[in-house]
């Protein structure tokens, strides 16, 4: 499965049903879903993963599990997304095999280059703008960092952190292949529309 520009990756929010959230985001045009819920049991994650995987097949979207490579393997997800404190990327690549997608969270070009050498298929670069979705420390990277990383990297850069309909275009213009969002969609009164608005804004700056 290819990560096509401009892609919107929806990351599930902890406080809502991940399956319902994913369905709305997919209906709005998301072509990548990342199941993320740090507090959930393995059993719940597995059940959600099986259901979201089916939805993603229907919508021809990529399905990724955050951190839990065990869940990604048993539920036959398309891949896994790992942070810097998760399993080492090169081991994840070995366990996943060549075909599955491996994404790594990075916050600098140096981290991104290490992730690529370890065999990742895309990097999640952030946070770009201030965000409260995941208690982030450190200053936002800004769009200049997107340009720096995407120009020096052979894999797609998916930008994350504080991305809204008003700045999604800037992120793509800076060189990102796509965006990853949680709250901009999860907390919107109409998550489908919030998703399609974001995609519209990304597309309009590519035309």
């Amino acid at each position: 499965m290819q990560i096509k520009r401009p892609i919107l990756c929806y990351i599930t929010a902890d406080n809502l049903c991940p399956v319902e959230q994913s369905e709305k985001a997919l209906e709005g045009g998301a072509r990548m879903i990342q199941l993320r819920n740090k507090g959930a049991s393995g059993s719940d994650l597995y059940d959600w993963a099986v259901r979201i995987r089916k939805l993603c097949r229907i919508h021809e979207a990529i399905f990724i599990v955050n951190d839990r490579l065990d869940v990604a393997l048993t539920a036959n997800a398309d891949g896994v997304h790992l942070g810097q404190r998760d399993l080492p990327a090169h081991l994840a690549r070995t366990l996943l095999g060549k075909e599955k997608i491996l994404g790594i969270s990075v916050s600098s070009l140096a981290e991104a280059e290490i992730a690529v050498r370890a065999g990742c298929d895309y990097v999640g670069l952030g946070h770009i703008y201030p965000t409260f979705s995941k208690q982030k420390t450190g200053r936002p990277l800004g769009t200049a960092c997107i340009t720096e990383v995407s120009q020096n990297l052979s894999v797609p850069v998916i930008a994350i952190g504080g991305i809204t309909a008003s700045n999604a275009g800037d992120v793509i213009r800076a060189g990102a292949t796509g965006i990853a969002v949680i709250s901009t969609v999860a907390e919107a009164p109409d998550p489908r529309k919030a998703t399609s608005d974001l995609i519209q804004n990304m597309r309009s700056c590519l035309q």
């Binding site: 393995g42 839990r68 490579l69 065990d70 393997l73 048993t74 399993l87 080492p88 081991l91 994840a92 070995t94 366990l95």
Partner: peptide
């Protein structure tokens, strides 16, 4: 539970 870590 973490069979991925067992494998790794």
């Amino acid at each position: 539970e973490r069979l991925d870590i067992t494998l790794a």
